[in-house]
């Protein structure tokens, strides 16, 4: 074709965008340049890498042994449980099964014959990597401060969804559960943890009965801020005997100290 031009040796074929300075205003993938209107390969691979990390996080497994080891110094019982889900594929297709404990787990909790005030549930959710990294760090900060006032247990749940905490709470007669769970991985954050709190947990509750602290990861919410909110939610729930939409989170009313004893 007459319009074809030879490529000059050493020159890039990428047409760069002149507004690259706009990248300072946003994390969105702008000013990527183009090759004949298509994405330059460097950008194709960058997106692929981010997606690969997210997929790997979804298929990561809960490090039950590691978590038990890390929590062993806290002097609270740690129960190792599983949902009714058999594998990750089923987990993704059947959220209902991830909300219930399997038979063996139910039996083991019934056999304890104990009751607790507060149960912390650690579940893999959609990113086990997230709780493998953050859950024991958060629990090591929060449990020692609460242990003198409350009888506490921890449950580790493989293939669990948020609502599995309701059944665990019911079986252990807990007054309150906090479910630490891996959130759906984004392209930029594969290791984001959420905490869902429920007062008077029982099977069958829905989301409006929960409070949520989300986006806990190094580039998102800090452990410190998460603990401030968690302390506030525990205080509010035990005082008012509720959880969920009726507790409004007003950040300026939160305690500066996450866990001052008189606030809990």
């Amino acid at each position: 074709m007459s319009t074809d031009k030879p490529v000059s040796v050493g020159a890039s074929v990428i047409q760069e965008d002149t507004w690259i300075g706009l990248k300072n205003f946003t994390k969105a993938r702008i000013a990527l340049g183009n090759v004949g209107g298509s994405l330059p390969l460097r950008e194709v691979l960058a997106l692929k890498l981010a997606h690969a990390g997210a997929k790997d996080a979804i298929y990561s497994g809960l490090d039950v042994d590691g978590l038990r080891e890390q929590l062993s110094g806290l002097q609270v019982p740690v129960f190792c449980l599983s949902s009714r889900v058999e594998d990750r594929m089923q987990y993704l297709k059947r959220p209902d099964l991830g909300r219930r404990l399997n038979e063996q787990s139910v039996v083991s909790l019934k056999e304890t014959g104990q009751t607790f005030d507060l149960v912390f549930v650690v579940a893999d959710g959609l990113s086990a990597e997230a709780v493998n990294l953050h859950a024991s760090e958060v629990l090591k900060l929060v449990i020692p401060e609460l242990a003198s006032h409350y009888k506490i247990a921890v449950a580790l749940v493989s293939q669990g969804r948020v609502a599995v905490g309701d059944e665990i709470g019911e079986l252990l007669n807990a007054r309150f559960t906090a479910v630490l769970i891996g959130e759906r991985p984004g392209l930029s954050s594969h290791e984001s943890m959420g905490i869902y709190t429920t007062y008077a947990p029982e099977v069958g509750l829905t989301d409006e009965r929960r409070n949520c602290i989300s986006n806990i990861h190094p580039d998102g919410m800090s452990y410190w801020d998460a603990l401030r909110i968690l302390s506030y939610l525990i205080e509010q729930s035990f005082q008012r005997k509720i959880s969920g939409v009726d507790i409004k989170l007003e950040l300026d009313q939160l305690p500066q100290e996450p866990l001052s004893r008189n606030s809990i």
Binding site: T26, A28, R29, I30, L32, G37, S38, L39, A50
Partner: peptide
């Protein structure tokens, strides 16, 4: 969506470049 990556809704859609592709 810039680079197919919606940083608010956290999902991947079609990009400006995809639009160039399909029109071409």
């Amino acid at each position: 969506v810039p680079g197919a990556d919606d940083i608010m809704l956290n999902y991947q859609s079609t990009s400006f470049h995809d639009a160039m592709y399909i029109r071409k």
